[in-house]
Simulated scan of single mutants.
Amino acid sequence: MSEQWGLCKGCKWWQIEPDASIEDQTCGYCIEQELQPFHLRITGNGGCNRFMAGKPARAEGSSEKPPTTVPQR
């Protein structure tokens, strides 16, 4: 876990639709291992201290309510 807080849109644990733009209001699914049981759906301008810099993962169903996909990492 990173001690540095960061935005979801710059985090490798944020998973979005395959054709989605990486924007503040884009909805995605947090796939950080300890948060997976919560099926956390969050926008790109959300953030937390589990931030890990990287490109978001992509999978169909990541923006559904609740997410209907599985983590891709």
Rank of each mutant, 00 (worst) to 15 (best):
M1F: 15
M1Q: 06
M1C: 06
S2V: 07
E3Y: 04
E3I: 15
E3D: 13
Q4M: 12
G6D: 10
L7R: 13
C8L: 06
C8I: 00
G10C: 05
G10R: 11
W14Y: 11
Q15T: 01
I16W: 03
E17G: 02
E17A: 07
E17S: 04
P18W: 07
P18D: 01
A20F: 08
S21N: 13
S21L: 10
I22S: 04
I22F: 03
I22V: 15
E23K: 15
E23L: 12
D24M: 01
Q25D: 14
T26C: 08
T26K: 04
C27V: 15
C27K: 05
Y29Q: 02
Y29V: 06
C30E: 09
C30F: 07
C30W: 08
E32C: 08
E32Y: 15
Q33R: 11
E34W: 12
L35R: 14
P37A: 03
F38S: 07
F38L: 13
R41E: 11
I42G: 10
I42Q: 15
T43C: 03
T43R: 14
T43V: 06
N49M: 05
F51C: 09
K55E: 06
P56F: 07
R58L: 07
A59R: 11
E60C: 01
S63F: 01
S63D: 14
P66R: 00
T68G: 06
T69F: 01
V70L: 10
P71R: 07
Q72T: 12
R73H: 14
R73C: 02
R73Y: 10
